[in-house]
Design a protein around this nucleic acid. Structure first.
Lengths: 333, 333
DNA sequence: CAAGGATGGTAAAACGATTAACTAAGGAGG
DNA sequence: CCTCCTTAGTTAATCGTTTTACCATCCTTG
């Protein structure tokens, strides 16, 4: 059977407390006892049971990470950032994907909380996260990442600056002389989309172009979803000369569909995508993207979680600025 | 403070055992006591502490998943498959990325084992996994996924058929008349690479072409790594007319580099990549890929883990066949 | 009505560690 | 030599559940 601390103690003819002290360095132990105990520990490859330790110490060195869509390159790289920083800090990660299911998200938080994770990093499925206050009000550490909502009290947030993202992309297209700019997005009622739309609006406003909601199109965040969305959008507004697509897979679907309609990028339709997928530079034409740094967001989110764990007062909203990578698809060069 | 079963029991004027029986349905409880207890449970939003439960029951409904590289689209989708099936089965996933670090991998297994995960799904960093026998010999459930090594006893394996993958890709190029076929790969000394090389060899053999190791090139599994690898390879063998690239990012780097050298795909160099990245059809020329189904591999791996948990005798090696998606880059159409 | 079987509930021992409080022995100092 | 401190080590409580074994009580049934 599995060897426990008791077994080690028995064989070394000491108490379990002494063994524990040897392992954790919590008390001076005489040289010979120390060596004897260590020898037996190594002999059996003994490693203390973390579950028992966690129960007693009420901490697990584990963080919960809940994402709403997976795999999605942005989310994936964010998870990577979180995992990497967690690993550096000696933490483990309990990863759950909710598939944009709000109810499952709430269940999951309950579950992870009951598993005594030290805190949770959450990219929520919807704006509807009032329920989180039940946890945050009791100072259970929750960090909102990527998406957020200000109805949640007492939680740090780490996100991209999505207003700026929408604004910068739109301004760039406006500067190229476009007036009819369509926007395609993959998820509704989340802060990322909402804020990018606000940025889009603000940019149009600055150029005295009235905002028209029918120039926005919601689709599935997939290649086919992008193709379908652009088809429907162009059907409605054949006067569109530029597009901002908020998701990499949808961007690829968009390019597909535009070619299908025998239109030229950027001559007939200029294009800015979101997120810098690896193949962007070798597509014809190379795709201009506006990007936010997912891995940095992930790492920063874990740092924020640690800050929150160590200081219950900590509630900062950190926003990462976007950057525009211009290639030919927007009409540049 | 946090409410425990004891608190519930006190308020309901029953023993903790009764509360536990109500929650788990392990004993008949009279209607009125049952209702009273449930009312109090709901009032406090009480959820039993999983850590205590896990310790007592010696199971955690948690699987460890250890991968060697992340993010990497193949691995990511595999993780997705595992997570999805785990979720369906009521399991959680403790995800760790070892970044191809063998020592960290061993440490991690020790740690997860001490955390009493019910089993581990491992995509090992190297072939050097003899140490696993320490666990598998004691019937601790370990499933090898993607990469494997037969020195490990008593472990199910779920992988792609990589021999067939190398064979099919090479045969396809040979059928197009190529005789000087280069191969670029991103990791050495792992079963995936080794077996694809074996498949490549077998295909050449069938066409009576002698195998020459210098037609293989190892690079970093990145865009730049792919570019550098193909540069070095073409430098060594300017007679190469076809390439099989074993990784999506490297494929993109390869295309970059080939264009850089003013060569045409597929006229000067035919190309087959591995893994069907979304943009493959819209690159010029569209990229032929040979693929293995990462999400199915992931799901199957979790199923295998469950089988192993329920039946210590279970040790099956499941291999998924590849499929070739032909587009123009290999000279088809 | 006594014996036997269900039935509903509880006490207490696990699970495997950590840690506060205690003890015995040895050494130092007056 | 007595007192007091250190020091090394132990005892036992604790973390929050589950679960076995036991105990009443009530119901049958002959």
């Amino acid at each position: 059977m599995k060897v426990t601390m008791k077994d080690i103690a028995k064989e070394a003819e000491v108490s379990v407390a002494t063994v524990s002290h040897v392992i954790n360095g919590t008390k001076n132990i005489t040289e010979d006892k120390y060596k004897k105990i260590m020898r037996i520990i190594n002999k059996y490859n003994y490693i203390p049971n973390s579950t028992a330790k966690n129960l007693r110490q009420k901490k697990t060195k584990t963080a919960g990470m809940i994402v709403s869509s997976f795999p999605d390159s942005f989310i994936t790289e964010m998870v990577y950032g979180v995992e990497e920083r967690a690993r550096e800090m000696g933490y483990n990660l309990l990863l759950v994907n909710t598939n944009e299911d709000k109810n499952y998200e709430e269940e999951t938080i309950n579950l992870l909380h009951s598993r005594m994770v030290d805190g949770i990093i959450l990219s929520p499925a919807t704006n509807d996260i009032e329920y989180l206050n039940r946890f945050t009000d009791e100072n259970f550490p929750v960090v909102l990442v990527n998406r957020y909502n200000n109805i949640v009290r007492n939680a740090p947030k780490v996100t991209g600056d999505n207003f700026q993202t929408g604004y910068d992309a739109t301004i760039h297209l406006l500067k190229h002389g476009h007036k009819k700019i369509g926007m395609i997005y993959g998820v509704a009622n989340v802060s990322t989309t909402d804020e990018r739309i606000q940025g889009y609006k603000a940019a149009l406003d600055q150029y005295n172009i009235p905002f028209d909601e029918s120039y926005l199109e919601l689709g599935h965040a997939t290649v086919n979803g992008g193709a379908a969305a652009v088809k429907s959008l162009l059907n409605r507004h054949s006067d569109i000369t530029a597009l901002f697509v908020q998701n990499d897979l949808m961007t690829i679907g968009t390019i597909h569909q535009i070619r299908e309609q025998s239109l030229k990028i950027p001559e007939d339709i200029a294009l800015i995508g979101f997120g810098d997928f690896a193949s962007a530079p070798i597509i014809d034409p190379p795709v201009t993207n506006i990007i936010l740094p997912p891995d940095t967001i992930g790492k920063t989110a874990f740092d924020a979680l640690l800050s929150k764990i160590n200081n219950p007062e900590y509630t900062k909203h950190i926003e990462m600025p976007p950057s525009l990578i211009t290639r030919k698809s927007c009409g540049c060069k």
